[in-house]
Amino acid sequence: MRVFPVYAPKLIVKHARIFLTGVIWVKDLGRLEFEKGRFLLPRKSLPKVKQAILELNELIEAQN
């Protein structure tokens, strides 16, 4: 598990694309899981977490 002390979308996306499957922890967002290079949306999450995951997945799609 990698810990990101700040929310840096480009760096987080780079990590997810390299490792494809895993878990990261982002300060103020908490634990985020990714599989096959995409972030998974938890069943229950705060609106800011949901927005961050959608933003990260959009960045991943834009890079493909």
Rank of each mutant, 00 (worst) to 15 (best):
R2W: 15
N57V: 02
P47Q: 15
L32S: 01
L11A: 13
A8C: 11
H15I: 04
K36V: 08
K27W: 14
D28Y: 11
K48W: 10
R38C: 06
Y7L: 03
V6E: 06
L29M: 10
N57C: 02
Y7E: 02
L59P: 01
P47A: 12
V23E: 15
E61Q: 11
A8H: 15
K50R: 11
E33W: 15
K50N: 07
S45C: 07
F4M: 03
R43A: 08
E33D: 13
I60W: 11
K44W: 11
N64W: 04
I12S: 01
L32A: 01
A52G: 03
V6C: 08
R2G: 08
I53G: 01
D28F: 11
L46I: 12
D28N: 15
R38N: 06
K10L: 12
L11W: 07
G22C: 05
L41R: 09
W25Y: 13
N64K: 04
A8T: 12
L29E: 00
I24C: 05
E55A: 09
P47S: 10
E35P: 00
E33M: 11
L40P: 05
T21S: 13
A16F: 03
N64C: 07
E35H: 11
Q63H: 11
P42F: 05
E61L: 10
P5V: 09
H15K: 02
K50A: 05
G22Q: 02
L59I: 10
L11K: 09
E55R: 07
I60P: 02
V6A: 05
D28G: 14
N57L: 01
M1E: 15
F19W: 13
K50T: 08
V26W: 02
I60N: 04
P47E: 08
E58A: 12
K10H: 14
F19I: 14
E58K: 12
L20Q: 10
I12E: 00
L29W: 04
L46H: 13
K10Q: 13
F34P: 00
K44V: 07
F4E: 01
N64S: 07
R38P: 01
K10E: 13
K44T: 09
M1K: 13
L46W: 14
K14M: 10
I53Y: 04
E55K: 09
